[in-house]
Design a binder for these strands. Structure first.
Lengths: 144, 144
DNA sequence: ACGCCACGTTGTACTGTACAACTAGTTTCC
DNA sequence: GGAAACTAGTTGTACAGTACAACGTGGCGT
């Protein structure tokens, strides 16, 4: 096995290990907002509102899945729907004030957890790791 | 925001994005063996057999979850149980010949997918990426 | 105006997961 | 030697997340 094969193998194993754990870790840390809900809410916040269809496309989720996730977030009072006056089929989704607040809390706590995990990393390593991940995910997106 | 903060932010986002997609991607690529089953079966293969409890501990899964996953793998004919003659509570789990074969196929195809995704990476970048992932996951393990 | 397309919801089914209660072996310790 | 405590695994139950298919409703093109 070449060095190259060994690296690829490691990357595969480690990415897989990470993926397996991510949900459970997130759930333990933030029982009030699952990883999926968090991601969707964060996207709404980031985009200053968007449609359910956009969320589905962006996250490769079925529209029914998004519909239910949003319904749950609405029930919690974290998201509100604004019917587009120009097209009554469309609902533009926005975080509520409360939703934005919860999101901010979870984001802060996630960020802190990541900072802790990465505390003893040097600047240069962090920077490189970040760019590798971006590159890797971009490639995955392209190849499916 | 410092450079350091920005890097941490990116790492967080990209790891999260990856985690969200991993299961679905795995399911699309390998309908015959889910990500979880694959992982468990691979561990059995790797360890030359182990107990259900060991799998649960290693993957932070409840023993009931492992029990059901193994039951499913057994039903598919991919795993067999051998009662430990010294302790009749214990079942040592092993991949069957067929299980090992399926595992080998999936592993090969996963490996190829990873190789494709990483095809245009240089040796040195691959190596560094791999070691960053190891380091990151090790830190996560330590801190919970 | 009719048919087609886009947006979203609802019915249904399945996977992965945890927790709690249970059964059945094993070890400890008096 | 036997009761209590422990360990391995299974089963009942519940729930989240997900997809697919069928549907309702609203807008658009010819």
């Amino acid at each position: 096995m070449t060095q190259r094969d060994a690296s690829v193998e490691t990357i595969q194993q480690e990415m897989t290990a990470f993926a397996r754990r991510a949900r459970a870790t997130a759930a333990r840390m933030h029982p009030e907002l699952s990883l999926v809900s968090y991601t969707l809410l964060a996207h709404l916040d980031d985009q200053q509102g968007c449609r359910a269809t956009d969320l589905a496309a962006h996250y490769y989720l079925d529209k029914s899945t998004v519909s239910r996730q949003i319904a749950a977030l609405e029930k919690l009072g974290f998201v509100e729907r604004r019917i587009d006056p120009d097209d009554h089929r469309v609902q533009v989704l926005h975080p509520t004030a409360e939703g934005a607040q919860v999101l901010a809390n979870v984001t802060a706590s996630r960020r802190q957890a990541f900072h802790e995990r990465l505390a003893d990393w040097g600047e240069e390593d962090l920077d490189r790791f970040a760019s590798y991940l971006v590159r890797y995910n971009a490639a995955q997106e392209k190849l499916g």
